[in-house]
């Protein structure tokens, strides 16, 4: 008997990477070709955002590198296209490809920071609501209910508008970025809070929590060290899908003219700028940032859909 147990234990991979490669999640990932493509595209976008400086032929934010001679060039496969402007240039002679890489960087930065902020807020409030219960729980969940009545984009727009009016005047790029992260975070926390609260309600009645209480651990330690790791699975799924939503929300706000300024454009800002040239025939100024945004969001959504199915055995 003991030998059998040892044999099973020996066949189990011990390192973290080994355990990951042995898991159901990895097996399901290898089975789904569409997910592999989507994950590859997502990683490619992230890598090009990180290495934007190395990959792009020019720095689109450096006016010294822009020449009006090069303005409104079509993409390279057109007869009038010129190297190194693969996807053409805009009115100021800015290379569209470089602008997309730098824009991607800002879109992803806002997306990740927004998700991180909303997840932190939502998880903390959900933990507190679920663990403490009573009036605290009721107040937090009522706020969540009210907020869930409204679409996230409306809340993001409102928060954005109000924060800007409180700060007043013209804001620089970095401040605008923080305002966007703040408004996106405030509009997406509800889902995390509800999910975490639900799981906490189940977890807190289990024996290990009773044991942790018995040895006298303070509530915050129990909440974050003991309960939190056990409710993180669904949070990961929500975070992936919300990354796509946060990127769309940022792009929408920038498109509406209340997001990133033209001096520090995200993909949404690039689309807004390009939209002005739609009628004069320069379709590439809006088309390529648009395609980049659509591909990025679609890829992240596909990965998120797969992750939801993979982490939830009930759906299989």
């Amino acid at each position: 008997m003991a030998e059998a147990i040892e044999a099973v234990q020996a066949s189990q991979p011990t390192t973290w990477a080994g355990r990951f490669l042995d898991s159901d999640v990895w097996a399901s990932f290898k089975r789904s070709r569409l997910t592999m493509v989507a994950a590859f595209v997502t990683l490619l976008f992230m890598a090009s955002a990180v290495f934007a400086g190395l990959l792009s032929p020019q720095d689109p934010f450096d006016p010294a590198q822009l020449e009006l001679m090069n303005s409104r060039l079509p993409p390279i496969w057109d007869a009038e296209g010129q190297m190194p402007f693969m996807l053409g240039t805009d009115e100021q002679g800015r290379d569209i490809f470089s602008a997309i890489l730098y824009g991607l960087r800002i879109s992803l930065a806002v997306g990740f920071l927004g998700v991180a902020f909303s997840a932190t807020l939502g998880i903390s409030l959900g933990l507190i609501a679920g663990y403490v219960g009573g009036t605290t729980d009721a107040i937090i969940m009522r706020i969540a209910d009210v907020q869930l009545t409204f679409p996230a984009i409306l809340i993001a727009l409102l928060v954005d508008g109000v924060v800007k009016s409180v700060l007043g005047g013209q804001l620089d790029g970095a401040t605008t970025l923080s305002v966007l992260v703040f408004s996106i975070g405030l509009s997406f926390w509800v889902q995390y809070a509800r999910t975490v609260r639900g799981s906490v309600m189940v977890e807190k009645n289990k024996d290990y929590i009773a044991a942790a209480r018995l040895i006298g651990l303070p509530a915050p330690v129990i909440m974050f060290r003991h309960v939190l790791p056990n409710v993180l699975g669904p949070v990961l799924v929500i975070a992936t899908i919300n990354l796509a939503l946060a990127i769309i929300t940022e792009a929408t706000l920038s498109f509406l003219g209340t997001g990133m300024p033209e001096t520090m454009p995200s993909l949404g800002t690039l689309i807004r700028i390009g939209n002005n040239y739609l009628f004069s025939g320069e379709w590439w100024i809006v088309a390529f940032p648009g395609i980049a945004l659509a591909l990025l969001v679609l890829a992240i959504n596909l990965v998120g859909d797969w992750l939801r199915d993979a982490l939830n055995p009930k759906l299989r």
Binding site: I248, A251, T252, F255, N275, L278, A294, V297, L298
Partner: peptide, 9 residues
Amino acid sequence: SLPTFLIGI
């Protein structure tokens, strides 16, 4: 997946 404004454009 497609943002509304892209469909409009």
